[in-house]
Design a binder for these strands. Sequence first.
DNA 1: AATAATACTATTCAAATGAATAGTATCACC
DNA 2: GGTGATACTATTCATTTGAATAGTATTATT
Lengths: 204, 204
Amino acid sequence: MKTLTSRQQEVRDFIQATQAEQGVSPTLREIARHFGFRSMKAAVDHVRALRGKGVVVWQPRRARSLRLVALGRRRTTVEVPVYGAIPAGFPDGRQQENQECLAVDMAGLGLRPTARTFALQVRGDSMIGKHILPGDYVILEHGKTVRPGDVVAALIDNESTLKTFLLDKGKPCLRAENPRYPQLIPARELVIQGVMVALVRKCQ
Amino acid sequence: MKTLTSRQQEVRDFIQATQAEQGVSPTLREIARHFGFRSMKAAVDHVRALRGKGVVVWQPRRARSLRLVALGRRRTTVEVPVYGAIPAGFPDGRQQENQECLAVDMAGLGLRPTARTFALQVRGDSMIGKHILPGDYVILEHGKTVRPGDVVAALIDNESTLKTFLLDKGKPCLRAENPRYPQLIPARELVIQGVMVALVRKCQ
DNA sequence: AATAATACTATTCAAATGAATAGTATCACC
DNA sequence: GGTGATACTATTCATTTGAATAGTATTATT
């Protein structure tokens, strides 16, 4: 990324500000008007320069298609549905507008944006030994291959519970990470709903 | 939010898909073409219905200004700069495109998007007692009022260190949350760079 | 001193796009 | 049996918008 001139930086900032305030990118004419250019060509030149420097991309002949590439990268953020508890099966993706969601940057977390990613809010301190606290949001992926030591959400008594997946003498089993509950549950006949890939904690 | 008809849901999904794939919202004509409508009016009607049901907003006479309100809410995501360590003072916000960033959903975390929000990647296990592990990203806010018990980033020996802020006999001091390092440092003359507001942990 | 990049004015054209009007057909609902 | 919502066809108009051409002045850079 080459350095920008101060004017080019101003244009870049205006594009960013417009996107933030208006929700859409500015048109060339709007850029020209904002800076008081009496000719659109000035705006065209600046945008062309920004494109040449790899700062923005746009699609020819499409209105308001300017995008900042730095921001483009961050737009790997995905809304992850937050479930209190997952009943059997997965709710289908329809009509979930009202659902609580958590925005997670997939690239930043080294995740592929999968439709099978979801979040659970932790209840209870059964995973305190893995430094997972009540209230934490655990982000899980459904269908990922489970390896021993992974934290998984399993369906026990029709409720999702977090456990560590282990191999005990070759047999898969689940363990709660709290010495007060030293349960060791055989993993057979249990539904593994997801493997933990990340965690988000709010403070206060 | 009223329920959508199946056709309206399809239109909503198309808008969402176009935004994801093309980076811009579709025009009314593009909606019509996608569904094979021979008249634009059909697309206009559907978008008007979606607007009436609060699913979508758009700005009159502005091309490609359609926005899904559910997604509009998630766009409170903010790129938070990740510092390994913060030297004295704050780097100014310019020309930081190459910087490592973490996308965080401010609304979902109950935060106001402040320019003074940043992240630190934790090194060492000095905060293990607060269930903060090495490798975790701690999100902090600069200038927030510190309360006893808060985790703060403080500048010690020209390097940012996480400590718990406490009052010891009325005197402010900092404590490492690891029994192996039972340091208690008077907080006077120390620069508190930020107060922890959230934590993000990647697994594996 | 020559050259290229930057930063603009001024004007025109054509395509893209939103908006409007006048209808038709279907279906649920009261 | 009427009413309203839904889901469209067909056509036209006015704006918005990107793109192009022909220049000028200033500021680096070589």
